[in-house]
Design a protein around this nucleic acid. Sequence first.
DNA 1: GTTAAATTTGGAAGAATGTGGAAGATAATG
DNA 2: CATTATCTTCCACATTCTTCCAAATTTAAC
Lengths: 256, 256
Amino acid sequence: MQAEERQSKIESYLQKAEFATLEELAQALGASVSTIRRDVAALEEKGAARRTHGGARLLQAPKSDEYVFNVRDTHQVAEKEAIGAACAALVRPGQNVIIDAGTTCFHVAKRLDDKVAQIITNSLPVANLFSGSNRHEVHLSGGTIYPRLGTLVGPHAVETFSRMHADVAILSGSGISGEGIYNSHALLVDIQRAMIAGAAQVVFCIDHTKFGRRSTFFLCDFADVDVVVTDALAPADLVQELRGKGIEVVVAPPLP
Amino acid sequence: MQAEERQSKIESYLQKAEFATLEELAQALGASVSTIRRDVAALEEKGAARRTHGGARLLQAPKSDEYVFNVRDTHQVAEKEAIGAACAALVRPGQNVIIDAGTTCFHVAKRLDDKVAQIITNSLPVANLFSGSNRHEVHLSGGTIYPRLGTLVGPHAVETFSRMHADVAILSGSGISGEGIYNSHALLVDIQRAMIAGAAQVVFCIDHTKFGRRSTFFLCDFADVDVVVTDALAPADLVQELRGKGIEVVVAPPLP
DNA sequence: GTTAAATTTGGAAGAATGTGGAAGATAATG
DNA sequence: CATTATCTTCCACATTCTTCCAAATTTAAC
């Protein structure tokens, strides 16, 4: 195996795990501890990881903070809370909703309260949020847990959504441009497409930092989208452009 | 485990518990009190926690959005912990296991550590337990959350298990008599039957208070059961009777 | 296609650091 | 004030790091 390939595998291992011992990495990649040590040193040099005694740790939050489920480390909390409140206000009492994984959608879930009775999600944090409540019926998709993010992924998850239907689907993405909406995780794209197909109304919650950005995977174009909820800092020209395409754009006012 | 990882785990433990004794942390993380003391000192240095006599406390009030599950639990804790340890000892490294919902099985899960790589469950607490670990692949069944218990039930859950296979299934019940094993929740019985059908070896963890009791629903007879794990207070005559039927009965010694 | 140079890899020896426990000092509790 | 628990400080031991070297692999040259 090439050194570069190994290093990129170490990176993605750390993306998932946050920490890893050299021993662990050596075993996972089939290389010696010495080699891994050198690789980790190179990654540190490059600024991609930090060396610790006995291992390595992720230096910075993974490239898309969107799916990291640690509220402490999240950015744009105020904006996301505002978006959460505005988006929850769009939901009419009694509707059943699909809620995507990710911090932005989690903030919507927090604001839903007793408005909705049925919730369908692939997010462990959302499931935990409602798990104690007997006023909600929560359907959790099956699937494999993506570590650290608490998101259920894989074919089971896709299948669940392709067989369920809801009045509203609340989703998020990691980029939005004139062409459509993007996401940075390949595993999530299939799931989100199934969510979109299964919902009568599709709402995307996207904070201003994602505007004008295209990330790795194209998710859908605007024909599939009914509403976009964003915050007050979203660029006015792009908002205007979206409205021109017939999308309802809700700009969430900052919360007091 | 490396120092940084341990410290980060201490942080998230404190997020859940707000306060923790060093003893408690040492036990939860499998390190000595001395080491934990040093870690907590480092966290204080960093400004992430505050040292107190005998333990550590969170600096700021816990964020309500944290990914939460209960650290402390219910009745017969000592017995359940003993059963958990004894049952986990039965699992051979590298096997993949199905884990049932319920507190007894949760204690087994806590003791599995790195022994198993693949875990299949319908329990939210078990899923949360492993959700941060990169060393485990956790498959969560789909289904509807049964509120109080954090258990996934319903046709989706049954279907998941009827399509998956494992080396060992670890289950619990609410009653055991000469005829077989019982459970008090109708919704769980179908799921447990699917778990049994999908596993090469079936292990039941049943504490002594359940012996000689029959509860509402008959789950299975002893033809389906390979091993029963119970605690030292289980009535000797019933244990003998089970052994007479060819069941391997493991009586867990009390933990020191 | 073969040989030589350069690079990468895996491992070993001593240095550095982390870990667990013990003894006495200090603080909490009744 | 006596008793218990916890803290500090220290030490032996274990793990990991650095540095070096030989073998293996890749690249370059002929």
